[in-house]
Design a binder for these strands. Sequence first.
DNA 1: AGCCAGGGTCTAA
DNA 2: TTAGACCATGGC
Length: 210
Amino acid sequence: MSISAKELYHALRAAYGQPRWWSDEAYTVMFQAVLVQNTAWGNVLKTCAALGGRLTPEFVAGLSTEELERLIRPCGFYRAKARTIQALTAWFRQYNFDHQAAARVPTGTLRGELLAIRGVGAETADVILVYAFYRPAFVIDAYTRRLLKRLGYAFLNDAAIRNFFESGLPEDARVYGQYHWLILEHCIAVCRKTPCCDACPLQSACARRL
DNA sequence: AGCCAGGGTCTAA
DNA sequence: TTAGACCATGGC
Protein backbone atom coordinates (compact mmCIF):
# COMPACT_ATOMS: atom_id res chain seq x y z
CA MET A 1 0.00 0.00 0.00
CA SER A 2 1.61 3.24 -1.14
CA ILE A 3 1.39 6.64 0.48
CA SER A 4 -1.56 8.88 -0.48
CA ALA A 5 -1.40 12.50 -1.59
CA LYS A 6 -2.74 13.65 1.74
CA GLU A 7 -0.40 11.50 3.80
CA LEU A 8 2.54 12.72 1.77
CA TYR A 9 1.52 16.33 2.35
CA HIS A 10 1.36 15.85 6.12
CA ALA A 11 4.67 13.99 6.17
CA LEU A 12 6.34 16.85 4.29
CA ARG A 13 4.74 19.45 6.55
CA ALA A 14 5.91 17.56 9.62
CA ALA A 15 9.44 17.41 8.25
CA TYR A 16 9.83 20.88 6.74
CA GLY A 17 7.22 23.05 8.45
CA GLN A 18 5.41 26.01 6.93
CA PRO A 19 6.41 26.30 3.27
CA ARG A 20 7.15 29.65 1.62
CA TRP A 21 5.31 31.00 -1.40
CA TRP A 22 7.33 31.42 -4.59
CA SER A 23 6.87 35.20 -4.55
CA ASP A 24 4.05 37.60 -3.74
CA GLU A 25 4.99 39.58 -6.85
CA ALA A 26 3.16 38.07 -9.82
CA TYR A 27 5.71 39.36 -12.32
CA THR A 28 8.61 37.92 -10.35
CA VAL A 29 6.96 34.51 -10.58
CA MET A 30 6.55 34.80 -14.35
CA PHE A 31 10.06 36.06 -14.95
CA GLN A 32 11.71 33.43 -12.78
CA ALA A 33 9.50 30.60 -14.03
CA VAL A 34 10.90 31.16 -17.53
CA LEU A 35 14.50 31.62 -16.39
CA VAL A 36 14.53 28.43 -14.35
CA GLN A 37 13.61 26.22 -17.32
CA ASN A 38 16.18 23.42 -17.37
CA THR A 39 18.49 25.67 -15.38
CA ALA A 40 19.95 25.60 -11.88
CA TRP A 41 18.05 27.82 -9.45
CA GLY A 42 21.27 29.48 -8.28
CA ASN A 43 21.75 31.02 -11.71
CA VAL A 44 18.25 32.48 -11.57
CA LEU A 45 18.89 34.01 -8.15
CA LYS A 46 22.12 35.57 -9.32
CA THR A 47 20.48 37.07 -12.37
CA CYS A 48 17.61 38.48 -10.33
CA ALA A 49 19.96 39.83 -7.66
CA ALA A 50 21.86 41.71 -10.36
CA LEU A 51 18.56 43.14 -11.55
CA GLY A 52 17.63 44.30 -8.07
CA GLY A 53 14.65 46.63 -7.99
CA ARG A 54 14.47 46.66 -11.78
CA LEU A 55 12.67 43.32 -11.83
CA THR A 56 9.40 44.96 -12.83
CA PRO A 57 7.25 44.55 -15.94
CA GLU A 58 7.62 48.26 -16.69
CA PHE A 59 11.41 48.07 -16.73
CA VAL A 60 11.62 44.83 -18.69
CA ALA A 61 9.08 46.11 -21.23
CA GLY A 62 11.41 49.02 -21.93
CA LEU A 63 14.40 46.82 -22.77
CA SER A 64 15.46 45.84 -26.25
CA THR A 65 15.72 42.14 -26.98
CA GLU A 66 19.51 42.40 -26.95
CA GLU A 67 19.55 44.16 -23.59
CA LEU A 68 17.27 41.57 -22.05
CA GLU A 69 19.38 38.75 -23.51
CA ARG A 70 22.48 40.22 -21.95
CA LEU A 71 20.84 40.47 -18.53
CA ILE A 72 19.60 36.89 -18.46
CA ARG A 73 22.57 35.26 -20.18
CA PRO A 74 23.80 33.37 -17.07
CA CYS A 75 20.58 31.34 -17.09
CA GLY A 76 21.27 29.77 -20.47
CA PHE A 77 18.97 29.47 -23.53
CA TYR A 78 18.96 33.25 -23.33
CA ARG A 79 17.72 33.92 -26.85
CA ALA A 80 14.61 31.76 -26.47
CA LYS A 81 13.99 32.91 -22.90
CA ALA A 82 14.27 36.58 -23.80
CA ARG A 83 11.60 36.17 -26.46
CA THR A 84 9.37 34.26 -24.10
CA ILE A 85 9.75 36.85 -21.36
CA GLN A 86 8.89 39.62 -23.80
CA ALA A 87 5.80 37.77 -25.01
CA LEU A 88 4.77 37.02 -21.45
CA THR A 89 5.26 40.65 -20.45
CA ALA A 90 3.14 41.80 -23.39
CA TRP A 91 0.45 39.35 -22.35
CA PHE A 92 0.52 40.56 -18.75
CA ARG A 93 0.16 44.15 -19.93
CA GLN A 94 -3.34 43.23 -21.14
CA TYR A 95 -4.14 42.93 -17.45
CA ASN A 96 -2.42 46.21 -16.63
CA PHE A 97 0.43 44.28 -15.02
CA ASP A 98 -1.98 43.43 -12.22
CA HIS A 99 -2.99 39.86 -11.43
CA GLN A 100 -6.21 41.10 -9.81
CA ALA A 101 -7.37 42.42 -13.17
CA ALA A 102 -7.66 38.77 -14.27
CA ALA A 103 -9.86 37.84 -11.32
CA ARG A 104 -12.91 37.14 -13.48
CA VAL A 105 -11.10 35.21 -16.17
CA PRO A 106 -11.67 31.47 -15.84
CA THR A 107 -8.62 29.39 -15.01
CA GLY A 108 -8.94 27.37 -18.20
CA THR A 109 -8.93 30.53 -20.28
CA LEU A 110 -5.86 31.88 -18.52
CA ARG A 111 -4.08 28.56 -18.99
CA GLY A 112 -4.88 28.57 -22.69
CA GLU A 113 -3.54 32.09 -23.08
CA LEU A 114 -0.32 31.15 -21.32
CA LEU A 115 0.19 27.95 -23.32
CA ALA A 116 -0.27 29.93 -26.53
CA ILE A 117 2.94 31.81 -25.74
CA ARG A 118 5.97 30.17 -27.33
CA GLY A 119 8.31 28.97 -24.63
CA VAL A 120 5.54 28.47 -22.09
CA GLY A 121 4.70 24.81 -21.60
CA ALA A 122 2.65 22.96 -19.03
CA GLU A 123 5.00 23.41 -16.10
CA THR A 124 5.65 27.09 -16.63
CA ALA A 125 1.95 27.78 -17.18
CA ASP A 126 0.96 25.96 -13.99
CA VAL A 127 3.63 27.70 -11.93
CA ILE A 128 2.25 31.05 -13.09
CA LEU A 129 -1.36 29.98 -12.53
CA VAL A 130 -0.70 28.87 -8.96
CA TYR A 131 1.86 31.32 -7.64
CA ALA A 132 0.96 34.46 -9.59
CA PHE A 133 -2.79 34.07 -10.10
CA TYR A 134 -3.68 31.83 -7.16
CA ARG A 135 -5.45 29.20 -9.27
CA PRO A 136 -5.52 25.51 -8.34
CA ALA A 137 -3.19 23.87 -10.86
CA PHE A 138 -0.78 21.31 -9.52
CA VAL A 139 2.78 21.85 -10.73
CA ILE A 140 4.44 18.75 -12.13
CA ASP A 141 8.15 19.23 -12.56
CA ALA A 142 11.27 17.08 -12.50
CA TYR A 143 11.20 17.01 -8.69
CA THR A 144 7.58 15.92 -8.54
CA ARG A 145 8.24 13.09 -10.98
CA ARG A 146 11.39 12.01 -9.17
CA LEU A 147 9.71 11.97 -5.79
CA LEU A 148 6.70 9.97 -6.93
CA LYS A 149 8.97 7.52 -8.67
CA ARG A 150 10.87 6.93 -5.45
CA LEU A 151 7.62 6.51 -3.57
CA GLY A 152 6.70 3.59 -5.79
CA TYR A 153 4.66 5.38 -8.50
CA ALA A 154 7.13 4.82 -11.31
CA PHE A 155 4.35 3.87 -13.72
CA LEU A 156 2.48 7.20 -13.54
CA ASN A 157 2.64 9.62 -16.44
CA ASP A 158 2.07 13.36 -15.98
CA ALA A 159 -1.71 13.13 -16.36
CA ALA A 160 -1.85 10.39 -13.74
CA ILE A 161 0.44 12.33 -11.42
CA ARG A 162 -1.84 15.34 -11.73
CA ASN A 163 -4.81 13.16 -10.90
CA PHE A 164 -2.99 11.64 -7.93
CA PHE A 165 -2.62 15.08 -6.35
CA GLU A 166 -5.73 16.90 -7.56
CA SER A 167 -8.16 14.13 -6.71
CA GLY A 168 -6.62 13.59 -3.29
CA LEU A 169 -6.70 17.20 -2.10
CA PRO A 170 -9.13 20.10 -1.67
CA GLU A 171 -9.13 22.29 -4.80
CA ASP A 172 -7.17 25.06 -3.14
CA ALA A 173 -4.42 27.04 -4.84
CA ARG A 174 -2.71 27.72 -1.51
CA VAL A 175 -2.47 24.02 -0.76
CA TYR A 176 -1.23 23.22 -4.27
CA GLY A 177 1.42 25.91 -4.19
CA GLN A 178 2.62 25.04 -0.72
CA TYR A 179 2.66 21.36 -1.59
CA HIS A 180 4.83 21.91 -4.64
CA TRP A 181 7.18 24.06 -2.60
CA LEU A 182 7.49 21.33 0.02
CA ILE A 183 8.39 18.79 -2.67
CA LEU A 184 11.04 21.20 -3.87
CA GLU A 185 12.49 21.67 -0.43
CA HIS A 186 12.54 17.97 0.16
CA CYS A 187 14.26 17.14 -3.11
CA ILE A 188 16.86 19.86 -2.75
CA ALA A 189 17.56 19.53 0.95
CA VAL A 190 17.54 15.78 1.40
CA CYS A 191 16.55 13.62 -1.51
CA ARG A 192 19.20 14.91 -3.90
CA LYS A 193 22.00 13.61 -1.71
CA THR A 194 23.20 10.08 -2.40
CA PRO A 195 22.78 8.02 -0.35
CA CYS A 196 19.86 9.79 1.25
CA CYS A 197 17.75 7.16 2.92
CA ASP A 198 19.17 7.45 6.44
CA ALA A 199 18.26 11.11 6.75
CA CYS A 200 15.07 10.99 4.70
CA PRO A 201 11.82 11.82 6.54
CA LEU A 202 9.95 9.76 3.94
CA GLN A 203 12.13 6.75 4.52
CA SER A 204 9.32 4.40 5.47
CA ALA A 205 7.46 5.17 2.22
CA CYS A 206 10.48 5.34 -0.08
CA ALA A 207 10.91 2.59 -2.64
CA ARG A 208 14.41 3.68 -3.51
CA ARG A 209 17.03 1.04 -2.92
CA LEU A 210 20.69 1.93 -2.98
C1' DA B 1 36.33 16.78 -18.50
C1' DG B 2 31.90 15.94 -18.28
C1' DC B 3 27.40 16.02 -16.58
C1' DC B 4 23.47 18.14 -14.85
C1' DA B 5 20.13 21.87 -13.83
C1' DG B 6 12.52 22.89 -11.31
C1' DG B 7 11.66 22.88 -19.93
C1' DG B 8 9.97 23.66 -24.46
C1' DT B 9 9.81 23.19 -29.49
C1' DC B 10 10.35 20.96 -33.70
C1' DT B 11 10.99 16.96 -36.57
C1' DA B 12 10.98 12.28 -38.18
C1' DA B 13 9.15 7.77 -38.08
C1' DT C 1 2.11 9.87 -30.42
C1' DT C 2 6.56 9.53 -29.14
C1' DA C 3 11.69 9.60 -29.09
C1' DG C 4 15.55 12.45 -30.10
C1' DA C 5 18.01 16.76 -31.38
C1' DC C 6 18.50 21.22 -30.15
C1' DC C 7 18.82 25.40 -27.40
C1' DA C 8 23.41 27.71 -23.78
C1' DT C 9 25.42 28.91 -19.41
C1' DG C 10 27.46 28.03 -14.80
C1' DG C 11 28.66 24.98 -10.99
C1' DC C 12 30.53 21.08 -9.26
